[in-house]
Structure formats: structure tokens, C-alpha cells
């Protein structure tokens, strides 16, 4: 199976590469349209800021390529947010796969720090991504912006308010958390995506 990781100006891409290699995959990090289109799985990872990453995708024509992919695609963190319609971060129009708008966390109490950084549980999971879990598992999050609950929500997390921890629509999957940094739980989620 050929797995590709979308190469763009976001951080944290190497962590995903390392995690997939630990599972025995041999991913290619690429921005080549042909390679991306011909892969069995595409991962769209990253850590970064919405406006500058969207601009980069647009300049390198990766926006249209990603939108046109037909194999299973997994967006991670900023990758998930960029797959939504719009982000409050930099007032940015995004790829529009998911009918949801990304919002900034607005703390209502002092102990609710932004970014949310650390391990939180995923609840109400309904997707093959979460097969094999019998209780709400902890996964690792680092983010200041979130996707509200919507039709595509396949897992929820509670921080300040309940929001989407993961999304699914057609061939597009996405997680707000970092499966590549979420220990054995994260490894299971990546395995489920590759299955």
C-alpha cells in the first residue's frame, strides 16, 4: 500500500512520517500531484496557522489537488481545520470539504488556558477510525481553534464546550488531535485508517 503525506509549509510533518514508519508503512512526503492522486492513502498533517498555510496550498495548486482526491484522506490538526469551509484564524477561506467553520476558543474561566495542550478524552465515537476502543480514550491535543459539532462529527471532546475531535465525510477523515503523538491509542487510530 502506498501512503503519501502532503508536503507543505506546516510543522510536524516528520512526526507523522515517523509514526507511520513505526507501523511498518513506508510513506512518501510529497507535493507531486501525480504521486498524491495515485496513492492508496493520503495524510494531510501539520501544525501551523490557517492563513499562511492556505496561501501556500493555493500558490502551489495543492488546494485543488487535495479537494479532488478520491482515496481515503486523513487530515490532522491544522489539516483538519483547513478541510473546513472557513477559519476564524486570519479570517481564512479554506477547502470546504466539511460544512463547518473553525472558531477560536473563548475561555469562560481562568483555568481554561488557550491553547488546549495535553491529553483529553474522545467521546461518542462513531467511525471505523475508533474500532477497538471500549471506553473514552485519551489522545493528545495542541490547538487554539476548534471545529464546532456538526453533521460530519464522528468524535467529540469537551474543552470549554463540546466540539468536534474528529470528522468524516465521504473519503475524507480528520482528527483535531495528533494520533502520531497519542501513544498506543494513536497508533491504533492510524492502523484503522490504513486498513
Amino acid at each position: 500500500m502506498q501512503v503519501s503525506i502532503v508536503k507543505y509549509n506546516a510543522g510536524n510533518i516528520r512526526s507523522v512520517d515517523n509514526a507511520l514508519r513505526r507501523l511498518g508503512a513506508e510513506p512518501i512526503i510529497t507535493d507531486d500531484p501525480t504521486v498524491l492522486r495515485n496513492s492508496d492513502r493520503v495524510i494531510f498533517p501539520g501544525q501551523g496557522e490557517a492563513e499562511s498555510t492556505m496561501q501556500y496550498l493555493h500558490e502551489h495548486k495543492l488546494d485543488e489537488i487535495i479537494k479532488g482526491l478520491t482515496q481515503p484522506v486523513l487530515g490532522i490538526c491544522i489539516g483538519m481545520q483547513l478541510l473546513c469551509r472557513h477559519s476564524e484564524e486570519g479570517n481564512t477561506d479554506c477547502l470546504g470539504i466539511f460544512d463547518a467553520d473553525v472558531r477560536r476558543f473563548r475561555p469562560t474561566e481562568h483555568n481554561q488556558k488557550v491553547p488546549q495542550m495535553g491529553w483529553n478524552t474522545i467521546n461518542d465515537t462513531k467511525s471505523k477510525l475508533f474500532e477497538g476502543f471500549s471506553k473514552p480514550e485519551f489522545v493528545y491535543f495542541v490547538h487554539s481553534f476548534y471545529v464546532p459539532l456538526c453533521e460530519a462529527t464522528i468524535a467529540t471532546t469537551d474543552y470549554i464546550q463540546p466540539y468536534s475531535a474528529a470528522l468524516h465525510k465521504d473519503n475524507f477523515f480528520a482528527t483535531q488531535f495528533h494520533p502520531e503523538k497519542s501513544g498506543s491509542v494513536g497508533e491504533q487510530i492510524l492502523k484503522n485508517f490504513l486498513l
Binding site: R14, R21, R22, E180, E187
Partner: peptide, 8 residues
């Protein structure tokens, strides 16, 4: 470390 450790 990055190759072998699966937590941050």
C-alpha cells in the same frame, strides 16, 4: 528519539 517515541 523522534523515530522511536510515540508521545510528545
Amino acid at each position: 528519539i523522534a523515530e522511536e517515541i510515540n508521545i510528545p
